[in-house]
Design a protein around this nucleic acid. Structure first.
Lengths: 203, 203
DNA sequence: ATCTTAACGCGACAGTTGTTGCATTAACGA
DNA sequence: TCGTTAATGCAACAACTGTCGCGTTAAGAT
C-alpha cells in the first residue's frame, strides 16, 4: 500500500513539517467548521502549503482523514474491564456513543468520506477491525468467568452490541441517547448468556 | 415539506412527463453505471431535460434518489410470515441482504447520498421508519404465540436483527454472506426468547 | 563542500457543481 | 378563445476538484 503515513523515502524535516501542518489544519477545520467545509483547497490555504502538494500526497479529503485516523489509531486504547460482560459492553457503548455525538466528529466525517474515497473506506475498515480485535478480550473474559458459553464468537457479539448505535445515529440519524446505548449493551449480554452468538462445534 | 413528488401547483402533462423521464434516467443510470456516475448533468443529458430544470426541482443527486425511493416506498410490501419469530427474522434478513448486495443498489446509493443531501437523509429515515413500523407485526405475532415476553420492544428487536447487516456491509464493507445474515437473525431471536428487548413496566 | 533527486511551489488547464437572469413555452383558468 | 404565470430552456457565471509540466528548494548521500 502507498502509505502517505510512511513515505520512508525522504522523511526529512520539511516533509514531516508539511505533514504535521496539513493534518493539524485538517483536524482544526473539521472541528471548527464541520465536514462540509473540509476541502483540499481550504486545508492548503489554511496551513500555507500549496494545493498541489496536498493533492499529490493525500489525493482527496478521504485521504486526509485516513491519515488523521491513522495517527489516532496507533494509540494505547484498551477495552473497559468492569468485571462483568454487561458492564464491559455498557462502558464500551458509552464510549462509542460519546465518539459519535460529542467532540470532533472524526468518526462521522470518516464514514461520510468513506463513500467517496477508497482510502478513507480502507482506513475505517482497518480502524474498526483493530478495535474489534482488541475488544475480543471482553468476550474471552466473560467466557472464562462462565458468564457465557465458551464457544461464543467475540466479533458477532461485539457487532451485535455496537451496530444498533451506528444504525440509529449514523444511518437513521435518529435521536439515540446514552441510555439507549446501554440498553443495547444489556440486550446483547442477555442474549449471550442465553447462548446466542455461539459457534457450532466441539466443546 | 416541499415535496418534489407532488408539486400540485401545475401537475400538467409536461411537468409530469419531465419528472417521469428524469426519474427513469436516474434509475437507469444508477443500474447501468453505478452511483459514482450519477450526476445531475448525466441524468439531464440522458433524458433530454435541461440541467437547470433538474437542479431547480431536485437540487442534487440526493433529491433525485429520494424521489425515486418515494415512488418505490409507496408499495404494498408486507413483512414475511413463516410461523415463527426466528423464521420471520431470517426471511427478513435475507431480503435486506439481497437489497444490499444484488440488483439496483438504490439503498446503498441513497445511504451514500444521505451524507451529502439532507433530502436524501430524510427520505431514507422516512423509508426505514415505515419499514420498521410495518415489521412490528412480526414481534407482535411472536408475543401472541408466547415465543417471547409480551413486553418486548418491536423496534429494538428489529434493529438488533438487521443492524449487523448494515454495519458489516455498508459501514465496514466486509464480506457478509446470506448465511451470516441468517445467523444474526437467529442470535436476535434467541436473545428475545431469553427476555432481551423487553421494556420495564406492568404485565 | 558538492551532487543527486525527492519533495515542493507555481501557474495553467479541463471538468464538475450549483446558481442566476432572462427569454420562451405551455398548463390552467376565465 | 385568450390571458396569466408556472415551468422550462438557455447562456453565462463563480467556485470547487483534480491534473499536468516545469522550475525551485532542500534532504540525504558522497
Amino acid at each position: 500500500m502507498n502509505e502517505p503515513t510512511a513515505p520512508a523515502r525522504r522523511p526529512g524535516g520539511r516533509t514531516a513539517e508539511v505533514r504535521r501542518r496539513v493534518l493539524a489544519a485538517t483536524r482544526d477545520l473539521l472541528v471548527e467548521r464541520g465536514f462540509d467545509a473540509l476541502g483540499i483547497d481550504a486545508v492548503a490555504e489554511r496551513c500555507g502549503v500549496h494545493r498541489t502538494t496536498v493533492y499529490r500526497r493525500w489525493h482527496d479529503v478521504g485521504g486526509l482523514l485516513a491519515d488523521v485516523l491513522a495517527q489516532a489509531a496507533g494509540d494505547d486504547w484498551t477495552p473497559p474491564d468492569t468485571g462483568s460482560l454487561a458492564g464491559d459492553l455498557v462502558a464500551l457503548n458509552r464510549e462509542v456513543h460519546s465518539a459519535l455525538t460529542t467532540g470532533p466528529p472524526i468518526t462521522g466525517a470518516l464514514i461520510a468520506a468513506s463513500f467517496r474515497s477508497a482510502r478513507a473506506a480502507e482506513a475505517l475498515r482497518a480502524f474498526w477491525d483493530d478495535r474489534y480485535a482488541r475488544c475480543a478480550v471482553i468476550v474471552e473474559r466473560a467466557a472464562r468467568r462462565a458468564e457465557i458459553p465458551g464457544r461464543t464468537d467475540p466479533r458477532r457479539l461485539l457487532v451485535a452490541a455496537t451496530a444498533p448505535l451506528y444504525h440509529e445515529l449514523v444511518l437513521l440519524r435518529a435521536p439515540f441517547t446514552a441510555g439507549q446505548a446501554e440498553t443495547a449493551a444489556h440486550d446483547t449480554a442477555a442474549g449471550a448468556r442465553a447462548g446466542a452468538f455461539t459457534v457450532p462445534g466441539p466443546a
